[in-house]
């Protein structure tokens, strides 16, 4: 199925959806959002692209393999537990650090965010893997 409208839409929607997924990922700790939903959005961006252009072309347009992305996500999630051990706490304890304290740009980052990034990649990779294998003819 070749649809010009869908192709143009998909081409422009992809960066938009990826950007939105990153926002959702970042705000996820205290507000609705998070790694899982962000990952789904990221995967959806590529699935939309694959619907418009076909799986083969989509796989050529991405520089990563979905299964490697999943593995990377798992690795990141695993690593996010390690800073706690280095700081003398039990594995997986959330460690927080505030950047630019006292200024307007106050930014609180911690290991749960790293874990969320891991989830983000793992979910995105898994979703793309499954969907591509179903869409492949």
């Amino acid at each position: 199925m070749e649809s010009i409208i869908l192709q143009i839409a998909a081409r422009h929607m992809r960066p938009l959806l990826i950007g939105l997924s990153l926002i959702v990922l970042y705000r996820g700790h205290n507000e609705p959002g998070g790694g899982f939903i962000g990952g789904l959005m990221f995967g959806a961006a590529y699935i939309l692209y694959a619907m418009a252009f076909g799986v083969v072309k989509t796989q050529k347009s991405i520089f990563f393999n979905p299964i490697n992305l999943t593995a990377l996500g798992l690795l990141i999630a695993l690593i996010s537990g390690l800073p706690a051990i280095m700081l003398g706490d039990i594995f997986m304890t959330g460690e927080w650090y505030t950047f630019f304290q006292g200024t307007m740009m106050e930014l609180k980052l911690g290991t749960p965010l790293i874990f969320d990034v891991g989830v983000y990649f793992a979910v995105a990779g898994m979703l793309m893997l499954v969907m591509f294998s179903i869409m492949e003819e």
């Binding site: 490697n68 593995a71 695993l78 051990i85 039990i90 997986m92």
Partner: peptide, 21 residues
């Protein structure tokens, strides 16, 4: 602390084995 190892070691092995599949 050793109690987390039976879970995180297989996960680590799994990741390594996926990358080197």
């Amino acid at each position: 602390m050793i109690l987390v190892l039976p879970i995180i070691l297989p996960l680590l092995f799994m990741v390594v084995l996926i990358f080197t599949r």
